[in-house]
Design a protein around this nucleic acid. Sequence first.
DNA 1: TCTGGGGTCCTAGGACCC
DNA 2: TCTGGGGTCCTAGGACCC
Length: 422
Amino acid sequence: MPAPPSYRPPARHLRRILLMDADQFFVQVARLVDPEGAGRAEVLLVGGAPERRGVVASASYGARKCGAHSAMPMARAVALCRGRAMVVPIPRRQCVERSRAIRAVLQRWAPRVGAASIDEAYLDLSGTEALYGGAPLEEVARRIQADVKHETAITVSLGGGTSKVIAKLASRPAKPGGVFVVPPGGELDFMRGLALADIPGVGPVFAERLRSFGLLAVADGLDQDVAALERMFRGRGRWLWERMRGLDDGVVETERETKSLSREETFATDLERDEDLVRELLALASQLGADARDEGLLARTITVRIRDADFRTRQAGFTLPAPVDSDAAIAEVARTLLGKLRRRRRTPARLLGIALSNFAAGRGVVQLGLFGGDATTDGAAPVESERDRRISRIRDALRKRFGSDVLSWGESLERGDSGHSG
DNA sequence: TCTGGGGTCCTAGGACCC
DNA sequence: TCTGGGGTCCTAGGACCC
């Protein structure tokens, strides 16, 4: 369906929003990828291997009957299923492909489609009444659902209503594989039947605070006026007042720029020695560098995250004067930051991660300032000397910030650096 | 049973500048 | 000589989501 040439957002109370949610998405894709194996396993767990301390990303309905659910440690889920479960890793590439295919179908139906995650998308169908011959939202949703199934073989559920929060909450009673639309004006009745913890954005911490005030159900909170809620939960009172009524001004965002990119790994067994951590760090830096270059992103800020054996998570970051995307530059900064974190607390670590953020303009942009006014990243392989110069300038920046001892920590960074002092 | 990996957004304090 | 307010950037941590 073609989008109207000039899209005009209609009055808020007339909005027609859908949330599409692919049911147990990873399970569905795993079964399509491997019809003879996973396809035949009624009790299927998709996620990280138990011996690698993984968790469940998606559990089949058969596995849920045993008590398994997503985010549960895989070892526990396997135990609950008493030897009847098949465990497979997330088929990442195929999941991304299916996700894109689903979105392509949705874009034929709605002028505005916004991906909320790999298996969820919002559709804004406001102003399309005439386009669909005045069909009710529920009927349009059923047609979309059938189209997605036909085109991609994926079963999806659709929730609908006058706001994103209503559409999202309506997708739950729609599961599995159904459609549930809250009619305009029916928002309050619908919300009254929910728990406060059901509201997206109310997590375990906020739910506990609400409970400490005796507020469990949405119905409990509807008695409170805005001022009372603001006094109890300053800053969040008005937000809560609105959400309890299904009010949500949020628009469906069609395109969002990437704000951060990261890679992390939990080790099968905790790592204690610095040299082992450095080795893992350098591997992560290479993966992340490749990701950044694939996306054409240049980052100024590099952050290292470490999770100690006691599950305490710490991080340290550094912002460079000019953006980078090379493995060596990321590794250099990351190694210094890891040194800082390890000096602060040297205990076995279960996880290590690196993140890039603070992105500058993409490829082909001339990098200015400290890192050399003549350095460009137009895709041509930089000559080694220029690369070395860039690394040297990064070393200077790190030395200035962290002191002259930073380079005494750990060994030389990369063999490509040829080991000599810069 | 021992807790993934990929993100977004918010807060708060300190540095620094005007 | 003393006091100050606002704005922006950086850093660390945390809540939350799928």
